[in-house]
Amino acid sequence: MDRLIYTAMTGALHTMTQQATVSHNLANASTTGFRAQTDAFRAVPVYGESLPTRAFVLDSTTGADFTPGAIQQTNRPLDVAVQGSGWIAVQLENGEEAYTRHGNLKMDANGILQTQQGFNIKGESGPITIPPDSRIAIGKDGSVSVLPSDSRMTAVSIVGRIKLVDPPAEQLVRGEDGLFRLKEGGQAPVSEKVALIDGALESSNVNVISEMVKMITLARQFDMQMKMLENAQQNAQQAGEIMTLRG
């Protein structure tokens, strides 16, 4: 009897966890450069005396779906999309390096190039600062060029180059802030193969229809596991009644 309760109870619990993952993906269906979170069920044996036949059901977060999203043209000078695989490096306040594909950039009050979340874009020589009253152009290789706002002046200056990296997907882990990092820490090397598309953004790779179907399937699984718990309770009551009659 208790084996049924172990399995159904933990199955219902982690079905709810997967529902939270699906809800999170759907909430970010329109987030630029978002990578859908993936997870799966797995069985874990319960170790202990007289418990070799018991098993828990656990939700195993397997990582993220790294399939590229669709490219959407915006014609905004500070919008960039990563073409194919690769990441834009950002520097956090604690000096840590992290990676994003959210290419909707901006400049802060000091002219430092940042993401919309306020993370500094990491250049190959440090933060990238844009001089005031300048027009900006971002090249395919991540080079950031500025032109004076006065159209009569045509001098072009390169003020930095965005650090572009392409570590293997299995080496990356998503943080609570939505940014990716190397599992073992450290910094990924610059990759010359990563290319940017200027004046464009990458959409989320969440498949809304697939996630909705998954949500319905999980809801049905949860109902089934709750019915198993109800059956276990009914069986226990009936067994108790039989023992009372025999007594």
Rank of each mutant, 00 (worst) to 15 (best):
I128V: 10
T129H: 08
T129A: 11
I130D: 05
I130V: 06
P131I: 10
P132N: 05
D133L: 14
D133C: 09
D133M: 15
A137G: 07
A137E: 11
I138R: 02
I138E: 01
I138A: 04
G139D: 09
K140D: 14
K140Y: 09
D141F: 03
S143C: 03
S143R: 10
V144T: 03
S145H: 07
S145T: 04
V146N: 01
L147A: 13
P148V: 05
P148I: 05
S149K: 14
S149M: 09
S149F: 04
S151N: 10
R152F: 05
T154E: 10
T154R: 13
T154Y: 08
A155K: 11
V156W: 00
S157Y: 05
S157C: 07
V159I: 00
R161W: 08
I162S: 06
K163G: 03
L164T: 02
V165P: 07
V165F: 07
D166W: 08
P167W: 11
P168D: 12
A169T: 13
Q171C: 10
R174D: 07
G175A: 14
E176K: 05
E176G: 01
E176N: 01
E176I: 06
D177P: 04
G178E: 07
G178F: 08
L179I: 00
L179F: 02
F180Q: 00
F180P: 01
L182A: 03
K183Y: 04
K183S: 07
Q187P: 06
A188C: 12
P189V: 02
P189C: 04
V190T: 06
S191G: 10
E192S: 06
E192Y: 02
K193C: 00
V194N: 10
A195H: 12
I197T: 12
D198M: 14
G199V: 00
G199P: 03
A200T: 01
L201G: 02
L201S: 01
E202K: 08
S203I: 02
S204E: 04
N205K: 06
V206P: 02
V206F: 02
N207R: 09
V208E: 14
V208H: 13
V208F: 13
I209T: 14
S210G: 08
S210N: 12
E211Q: 13
M212K: 11
M212G: 12
K214P: 04
K214Y: 01
I216Q: 08
I216G: 00
I216E: 04
T217S: 13
L218G: 01
Q221I: 06
F222N: 06
D223R: 12
D223F: 07
M224I: 13
M224P: 02
M224A: 15
Q225G: 10
Q225V: 08
K227V: 06
K227M: 09
M228V: 13
M228F: 09
L229S: 14
L229M: 15
L229H: 09
E230D: 15
A232S: 15
Q234L: 11
N235W: 09
A236P: 05
Q237W: 07
Q237H: 05
